[in-house]
Amino acid sequence: MHKLLTYRGLNAILVIFAAIGMAFALFFLQQHMGLAPCPLCIFQRIGLMVMGVFALLAALFHPRGRIIRVLLWIGSMLGILWSTGVAARHVWLQHLPPDQVPSCGPGLDYWLEALPMQQVVHEVLSGSGECAAISWQFLGLSIPEQALIFFSFLLIINLMVLWRIISPPTRVLG
């Protein structure tokens, strides 16, 4: 158990959960259930992958220098903060009264071809009618609500990684 709470162990846990989250989204929701991801779902996945890549680098290379560890942690934290923020926005959109839900716009593919990236991000985060639709629930929670809980859990693990970076090493007497 102690090895799981090391710098390397916590980063490995983040990588495993990122892989589980992506597998759930791609294989269960998308392939098995036939649910196409909305633009906000795609942005959440991007943040999860960013977190996973930085955590993987930290777990594989296990840098000794505190500065490198902090830089890898910042990358991981930015990825999961992005996913958490987008999921929170998604949940908010789903809880709007029907008359306040934004209308459906063109798809993400069109935006990427026709608009500059800054405007694409703005349009996606503004949401659309398709993002407000609740297409599947488990235990009474929509997919974005489940994602928000999952990302919050990963955020806590990321904070534990920071704790491992800034806390002085413990010495075992024996």
Rank of each mutant, 00 (worst) to 15 (best):
S142I: 08
P106H: 09
S167W: 04
Q31F: 06
L154I: 07
L148D: 05
L162G: 02
V172K: 13
A36V: 07
S135M: 10
S135L: 10
L148M: 09
V91P: 01
V121T: 11
I166T: 14
L159V: 12
I16C: 14
F17T: 14
E145A: 12
T84K: 11
L162S: 06
R69I: 11
S135D: 13
L148C: 09
A19K: 08
M1I: 06
G21N: 02
P116R: 08
P102H: 03
A133Q: 15
G140T: 05
L78N: 10
P98K: 14
L155H: 09
F150N: 01
E113A: 14
Q44F: 02
F138E: 03
V50Q: 02
V53Q: 10
A147K: 01
I42M: 10
I67Y: 03
S126R: 15
Q146W: 03
V120F: 02
S142C: 06
L14T: 08
R89E: 11
I165P: 00
A25P: 00
L81K: 06
H32K: 12
L155Y: 05
N11P: 14
I149M: 07
G34W: 04
P39D: 06
Q119E: 15
A58C: 10
A132V: 06
S128K: 10
E123L: 07
L71W: 06
W163Q: 14
L14M: 15
F27A: 15
M117H: 12
P106T: 12
L60E: 13
E145C: 05
G174D: 08
P97V: 07
V124S: 00
G79A: 11
L173K: 07
L4M: 13
N158M: 09
